[in-house]
């Protein structure tokens, strides 16, 4: 768990610091932050044993709304 947070910090805050110093637009840094936090959530869901699986969500919606083919 702590290893994950450590890698997350290294992967997001270090580059963000570099971007800020290099003078990137605000939007880019924010998008970078959002994407890597999304990554963190996915990895957290794996570690906490109920993985976020987009395919099961798709399967659930397809079964409920449109039952296309057998």
């Amino acid at each position: 768990m702590t290893m994950l947070v450590l890698i997350y910090a290294a992967v997001t805050f270090l580059p963000m610091h570099v971007f800020a110093r290099r003078g990137y637009e605000k939007g880019e840094i924010i998008l970078f932050f959002i994407l890597s936090t999304l990554g963190l959530f996915v990895w957290l869901s794996i570690l906490l044993k109920h993985p976020f699986s987009p395919d099961t969500i798709v399967a659930w919606t397809i079964d409920r709304f449109f039952d296309l083919l057998p």
């Binding site: 992967v11 997001t12 580059p15 971007f19 990137y24 880019e28 840094i29 998008l31 970078f32 994407l35 890597s36 999304l38 990554g39 963190l40 996915v42 990895w43 869901s45 794996i46 993985p51 976020f52 699986s53 987009p54 395919d55």
Partner: peptide
């Protein structure tokens, strides 16, 4: 800026899918 965090995200989704 966009590509690099996606690695992290895609590897995660691939594993948790």
């Amino acid at each position: 800026v966009v590509a690099f965090p996606l690695i992290w995200l895609i590897a995660g989704i691939a594993l948790s899918d």
